[in-house]
């Protein structure tokens, strides 16, 4: 089992400034799943009830000279502590950037290597697996070892792969969030009021969030959003209704779905905004099995989707939800 690659400056920037801060909000540890073509950060795919997040990079988006081999179809997966990974990366960058990154002419002189190693940790007789970063500056070289779990067994990797395949289904209707910052500060304030969030999405492009407890009902409706996938035209009379009535009618007509999720999960999903996506879409999976948020990244300076990066989250639906 071998993995060795060099992080590109773009890759370093993507991870250090954008994805690691975002993924750290999803949960302290995640699976890092490396294949021949992809590096994928996965949260909660094998263990149940948390928010699932999937951040997938084509190897070229992060690495160069990417080499991987394993007896399991060249696939390696392990769990890693994201805050340690982030710290190690930040620390190594202070040395790495002494040379001004790899733009310093002879790039072979100064590269940021990442590899999988087994080492004997201090005060231990058992060798342990590490993800190791290595680079050098003017006067110093630095190695950072990030402890990781034992690589997943063949069957666990298969299970992870099939969970990943299952998690790729897109909802039939997705609506685009108009302003993530606004939504974030709204939900941040809303979460003081209750724990369970009702999310309704219509084919007309309405996103309706509501918290309802015995003491208060608090909601917000965002209308006329961009719809991706199945859409429908709202009846003209709907404009004069209250948000609640409008949503109820849309559900009755089969033009909307509604699920209940944890406010905390919803807030976490918005925090993926730290990865600086260019747009975000919410949708409800078929049969209301989960709430999905898909983030879209553009090729810098264009409006074209950057297919080398993808990020989406799936929010588990609360079981006892559900008059709908």
């Amino acid at each position: 089992m071998k993995f060795k690659a060099f992080l590109t400056d773009h890759g370093v920037n993507l991870l250090e400034k954008r994805f690691l801060p975002a993924l750290d909000k999803m949960g302290k540890t995640c699976h890092l799943y490396l294949t021949r073509d992809h590096a994928i950060f996965l949260h909660n795919l094998l263990n149940g009830d948390g928010i699932q997040s999937i951040a997938q990079f084509q190897k070229e988006a992060l690495f160069e000279d990417y080499r991987i081999s394993s007896q399991n179809d060249d696939r390696i997966a392990f769990t890693i502590d994201l805050s340690l990974l982030h710290r190690a990366l930040r620390s190594i960058l202070t040395i790495y950037t002494e040379f001004g990154g790899s733009h310093s002419g002879d790039s072979a002189l100064n590269r940021l290597q990442i590899k999988l190693v087994k080492k004997l940790p201090p005060h231990s007789s058992q060798p342990m697996p590490f993800l190791t970063f290595e680079t050098k500056g003017y006067k110093s070289a630095v190695i950072q070892d990030v402890p990781i779990s034992k690589p997943l067994s063949r069957s666990d990797v298969l299970e992870l792969q099939s969970a990943l395949d299952m998690a790729q289904d897109l909802p039939q209707t997705l609506v685009q969030v108009p302003d993530m910052n606004q939504l974030q500060s709204f939900v941040d304030r809303m979460k003081h009021v209750g724990d369970v969030l009702n999310v309704s999405i219509t084919k007309y492009g309405d996103l309706h969030l509501q918290i309802s407890t015995s003491l208060i009902t608090l909601g917000a409706e965002f209308r006329k959003l961009k719809v991706v996938g199945e859409q429908a035209r709202a009846s003209p009379g709907d404009d004069n209704l209250t948000a609640q009535t409008r949503t109820r009618r849309a559900i009755d007509k089969g033009n909307a779905m509604s699920v209940q999720v944890s406010v905390k999960h919803f807030f976490k999903s918005i925090q993926c905004h730290l990865a600086k996506p260019d747009c975000a879409f919410y949708g409800i999976a078929q049969q209301g099995s989960c709430l999905t948020v898909v983030f879209q990244f553009f090729v810098p300076g264009t409006r074209q989707t950057d297919k080398s990066i993808s990020l989406h989250c799936r929010l588990p639906v609360l079981v006892d939800s559900g008059t709908n």
Binding site: S214, I216, L218, A220, F222, R223
Partner: peptide
């Protein structure tokens, strides 16, 4: 705003 609306009912 016509396109977004926040509402609350406090018991």
């Amino acid at each position: 705003s016509l396109s977004s609306c926040t509402y609350a009912e406090i018991r």
